[in-house]
Design a binder for these strands. Structure first.
Lengths: 136, 136
DNA sequence: ACTTTAGCTTGCAAAATGCAAGTGCAAATA
DNA sequence: TATTTGCACTTGCATTTTGCAAGCTAAAGT
């Protein structure tokens, strides 16, 4: 897969080349909040990503330094995906999407609680979750 | 164009159905920061959106209540596009994308200043820009 | 009246997506 | 040891979306 070409110098545009599609942020969500970290974990998510699409997205996210692979401690057959610091730093963006959603969509109860916590003190929420992710 | 189907109840997923592509947020950016508000304005942006794609994106954004059309005061031939409150509320998301970009990409000087201001006091920045957008 | 501007639509080729099936290796099971 | 299962993909192919160029209609400008 060729690395996506730059359409302009606009940082928003460049960012969209990294995660501006219908799937990438969902994988990142799974890594952040879903306690998912393997290929099959991602495949099982509710949205039903196709296996070839998942493969290309994982490759793209890795090339862009958002995620990294490592061997799974309990088996050579398993691969562990985890967020890099660059990936973890996407948390404020995703948090704001959730907060926006909360205003305009009905929100499932379990997620509602997390959003409420985030809204109460955004900085605190980001620091807390980031810290947890870094120890994984 | 049929309205996009819901893949899951996840609010992030639903949000991505609204603006999770390579173009929608750029249109919103143009409306927020680019002082652009007509079809041809958007066409002229640096990324070079194709005219048919622009048309479908504008339709989608309107269907989703992010933008709305109105007649241009100085000509019947012109159409003014503007952000709704729902659209303006996307500002925190876009702001966070800019802040993330600032950490990982080289940023053009003019945008750099805006990002710096946003980082200094996020709430203030959002309030200020939102207010300006609402008076337009 | 004639040309330009604005906001699209249409046609078609190229690329991306979605679905099903298959592959190769490791690990668990019989 | 042989066989089956699980995991991480790859491949083939039909469908959908994108990108590019051209055209179209109504209003404005000259």
């Amino acid at each position: 897969m060729e690395t996506s070409k730059k359409r302009s110098d606009c940082p928003l545009s460049q960012s969209l080349e990294v995660f501006g599609d219908k799937w990438s942020l969902l994988i990142i969500r799974d890594l952040m909040f879903g306690n998912k970290c393997t290929y099959n974990d991602f495949l099982k998510s509710a949205e039903g990503i196709a296996t070839n699409i998942l493969a290309t997205r994982l490759k793209g996210l890795e090339e862009n330094g958002i995620i990294e692979k490592s061997g799974h401690p309990e088996s050579k057959a398993k691969i562990l995906y985890k967020l890099t610091t660059k990936g973890i730093d996407l948390l404020p963006i995703i948090m704001e999407v959730y907060i926006w959603s909360d205003k305009y969509f009905p929100i499932p109860a379990d997620i509602k609680a997390t959003i409420k916590e985030a809204k109460k003190d955004k900085d605190k929420f980001v620091k807390q979750v980031s810290k947890e992710l870094k120890t994984k």
